[in-house]
Amino acid sequence: MKLRALLPLLAFLILVVLLGYGLTRNPKDIPSPLINKAAPAFDLPAVLNPDDKVSDKNFLGKVTVFNVWASWCSACRDEHPILVKFAKEHKTTIYGLNYKDQRADAIRWLGIFGNPYIASAYDVTGNTGIDWGVYGVPETFIIDKKGIIRYKQIGPVTDKIIADKILPLIRKLEKE
């Protein structure tokens, strides 16, 4: 047996390892290019009161959770009670970005399911969403005291993710 004859087998085994690794990944998860960059600027009216403004300036000086949601998004409904509970149990600043929604629907939604947000920015055009690289609602960002994005969660936040990733990170960032 020549060693050369083993080459195809070797190449195939590498391929199998690669494909096996692929099974553990979601090919649609894109890491955010905004990690460790300044939060993109925006200045939008608030959902509940159009005269109030929500902007990236609100995030400065404290660790902020910024959650992108919409009333039309079914995964947001699964996520929402967890956020409400999280807001109650921990004194964390949570802002919302209401993405491509109707104001009346959004207000009704908050009325029914509870409002964990200090305020939600009303992004009816989706332009702020584009600037934040939002592509699948819900998404959740964690921003440090200096207004730098430190973490992004794509898809609904779960209790496990809060316990394993979000809370430890917030604790760490608060000490910085």
């Binding site: 894109i30 890491p31 955010s32 290019p33 905004l34 584009i130 600037d131 934040w132 690289g133 592509y135």
Partner: peptide, 8 residues
Amino acid sequence: MVERFTDF
């Protein structure tokens, strides 16, 4: 586009 969504 890349700044917001990466090379993806």
